[in-house]
Nucleic acid binder design. Sequence first.
DNA 1: GCGCAAAAAATCGTATACAATTTGACCATT
DNA 2: AATGGTCAAATTGTATACGATTTTTTGCGC
Lengths: 234, 234
Amino acid sequence: MKTAAVPADDQIDISTQSIRDSIRDAIVDRRLAPGTKLSEADVGALFNVSRTLVRAALQALAYEGLVNVEKNRGAFVAYPSPEEARQIFATRRLIEPGILREAAKHMGPSHLQHLRQLLMEEGRLMAERGQTARRAEIKASGDFHLMLASMTGNAVMQRFMDELVARSSLVIALYGQSAISSCGHQEHHDIVTAIENGDLDRACHLMIHHIDHIEADLDMRENKGSDLREAFGL
Amino acid sequence: MKTAAVPADDQIDISTQSIRDSIRDAIVDRRLAPGTKLSEADVGALFNVSRTLVRAALQALAYEGLVNVEKNRGAFVAYPSPEEARQIFATRRLIEPGILREAAKHMGPSHLQHLRQLLMEEGRLMAERGQTARRAEIKASGDFHLMLASMTGNAVMQRFMDELVARSSLVIALYGQSAISSCGHQEHHDIVTAIENGDLDRACHLMIHHIDHIEADLDMRENKGSDLREAFGL
DNA sequence: GCGCAAAAAATCGTATACAATTTGACCATT
DNA sequence: AATGGTCAAATTGTATACGATTTTTTGCGC
């Protein structure tokens, strides 16, 4: 009956926000499998806080779409349906070109430098092998898009992208096939190059294809686990 | 020290969701002025529930950007800064054309019918005068955009638009000049007409201008109240 | 051994209790 | 009168308590 463990930072006094972030990281990094039950008592015990704070954190995560709360049953790590996944990527295709253009407006040489730097890091991590590398890779891939969003200087867009990237990571972790995603890295580079050349149309074009590729790499046939609950009502 | 009143549905047993919706409606309808303190105890008394549920509702509203929660000080109806307002409309310009195109894909004659119907309603309300009419007008105006979003069949986009429209309503209530907004109604009609004619480029063009007009109608000079807290750091 | 009903345990929903922090008032001092 | 400080009241932060619901286990008959 134990729920899956989240690494407990020992001792430290922890607030709602920290709990939320810890659980979120664990979900996005796939240390918590989709469908895992997040019992209020158990999570509280791990962090040495009362259920009150855990509840608040779980409700916030539910709002972000990373957790499902079922009345009188508890909170579960979200298990996005293929349809949900499609909607997430459709939304990204819709807004990311705009974010790209907006970001490009505010971009100086130092910003481009930062982007390249992030891609270098991403490249290094991808050289590795194994589970850890894959996690880091997914994360780094998301960070590229988040950095673009932050360069718009628009906090609203940034928050939307935060949510979309987090949910995308969950989807990729769920349905992703380990192999191919390395081409995504090259696409990031190409996008930055297009921006550098001032060819925004091309950059947007590349961005859309990039998102297409991410989605195409997924194998979203059902029954990759206990989809049963969703298969019926809730 | 009394906080402003929310109309209390007598007796009925009320859940977190209802409280959230009631407060949200009150904020969007401007029955609760921006900056108003929402004391947990007072709100709880109005709805005959404990602070626990009120807190949950307020936290959810904070996530939507309709309420600011300041640590150890309490929750206040959001008082969006001009910069925030600009970001909200910038985001809308970014995503609404895409929503329009996406919605158009899924649109049949019955959907167009629904849109026209909504606009008729909107027109009737605008004939009225006074505070109530203005509220209804703001609401109806938002509903048009929400209905478009719902026609995409994309729940993620729909939620984003929910948030954007709610926050826009708050901004309009705050900075809006009562006079001019009636032209927005005509613009809604024009957009639907363009969709009917299958001229999506034109519809998108109109949509962007429509949002521009809404924003242009605002008078966002500072000091429309006690902006002091925001003027410094929080 | 299998199915089913009832009891027991676990878990969530909500209220309340208590600690920590802020707010406001009152008074002393300059 | 203005400034500053201390204490009381109010308000939020967190934990705990208790009732309601769900889940599991038990035990009985077949």
